[in-house]
Structure formats: structure tokens, C-alpha cells
């Protein structure tokens, strides 16, 4: 390609390119793919999405889940999503922003959902994750605990667990921890 390089060098000396603006503007492949996910988004009625940084930042968004069945019925839970530029090679980072009494979500908002970590595949999408999160509220699981106290109560005394969830959602203490109202 040396000949071409020489020609280009001479051209450059003659004139700085007039119209050769590149079409790349820091839009990553991940962002482009996320665009498709957003268009395909088909959320259950109990879930909604919002974009705190406006219409041009799809990489950071929030999902609100309001379960309509199960222990958490009537509660309102916010999750923040942070999508990497190499999405979908890497799963989005998801945190629960509402403090919740839940066996699979710890008090820092870490979520134990297999498709967010060990079982993530690039064919999955934002919709899958939201359904996965929703499922955590309808079917909390004591076998994969992040909050082991809550998990033990769910396993040994489901009735007590139900009361604890209600107490936490209404705003109050369960054990040593205070939960703010989220109904």
C-alpha cells in the first residue's frame, strides 16, 4: 500500500480534506445494539422504564417493577441499569435502588439473578433481564440467597416471611434493618 500512502501524503499537502468527516462519533457497537433492544422492549404492565439522562443516553436507565401478584404485590422497586460499550458481550450491570427484604437481593442492592452473571449470553436482551427481575418478586428463591436471614425465614416459615415482607414494604424494621416504605 506504499504507493497509496505516498499519494495520500501528497494530497494532504495540497489540501486538508474538505468533506472527509468521519461518521464515527463515539457511538459504540454496544449502543447500536441496545437501540434494537429498546425498540423490541415489550414490558409486562407491571414494569416501566425511564431514561434519567434524556433520550440520547440509552446506556443508563431505570426500570420500575410493581408486582401484581405474590408476596411483593403492591410494592414498588427501582432498578438501575448500566450497559457497557461492549454489550451484549457483557451483561448490563443491574442494581436495586430500593432497599428490599428479599432472599435474592442484598441490602446494598446486589441482585442474584443467574442471567446477570454466570448465565449471561449475548442472545439475551434487556427484556429478558426485566422478566428475570420480575420473576424474582413473584417467585423469591431461598436456595440462592444473598440475604440469608430472609432466605431462612422463607424456607422455614413462609407465613412469617409474608408478614416480614409486608412490614418492610409498609416502612418499618425487620430484625435490625429498617426498610423505607415502597408501596
Amino acid at each position: 500500500m506504499i504507493r497509496l500512502f505516498k499519494v495520500k501524503e501528497k494530497q494532504r499537502e495540497l489540501a486538508e480534506n474538505t468533506n472527509g468527516k468521519s461518521s464515527f462519533t463515539k457511538q459504540s457497537a454496544g449502543e447500536i445494539r441496545l437501540h434494537k433492544d429498546m425498540r423490541e422492549l415489550n414490558l409486562p404492565k407491571s414494569c416501566s422504564i425511564s431514561f434519567p439522562n434524556g433520550k440520547d443516553d440509552l446506556m443508563n436507565f431505570q426500570v420500575t417493577i410493581r408486582p401484581d401478584e405474590g408476596y411483593y404485590r403492591g410494592g414498588l422497586f427501582r432498578f438501575s441499569f448500566k450497559v457497557s460499550p461492549i454489550y451484549p458481550h457483557e451483561a448490563p450491570k443491574v442494581k436495586c435502588n430500593s432497599k428490599v427484604y428479599h432472599p435474592n437481593i442484598d441490602l446494598e442492592g446486589n441482585v442474584c439473578l443467574n442471567i446477570l452473571r454466570e448465565d449471561w449470553k449475548p442472545v439475551l436482551n434487556i427484556n429478558t433481564i426485566v422478566y428475570g427481575l420480575y420473576h424474582l418478586f413473584t417467585e423469591p428463591n431461598h436456595e440462592d440467597p444473598l440475604n440469608s436471614e430472609a432466605a431462612a425465614v422463607l424456607r422455614d416459615n413462609p407465613r412469617m416471611f409474608e408478614l416480614n415482607v409486608k412490614k418492610a414494604m409498609a416502612g418499618g424494621h425487620v430484625g435490625d434493618n429498617y426498610y423505607s416504605r415502597c408501596m
Binding site: 447500536i32 437501540h35 429498546m38 425498540r39 423490541e40 416501566s48 431514561f51 434524556g54 433520550k55
Partner: peptide, 22 residues
């Protein structure tokens, strides 16, 4: 179709919140 140009979302068919914004 939803349309993006240089990282700016010109029009998004869905989700409704983005449709409204664009």
C-alpha cells in the same frame, strides 16, 4: 423504523417514553 444518527436518537418507536421524547 427507529432512527439513530451519531448517537442521537432521532426517533424511537418504542418504548412509549422514548417515543414521546422523540
Amino acid at each position: 423504523a427507529s432512527i439513530t444518527h451519531r448517537g442521537k436518537n432521532l426517533y424511537m418507536q418504542a418504548p412509549p417514553v422514548l417515543e414521546e421524547m422523540t
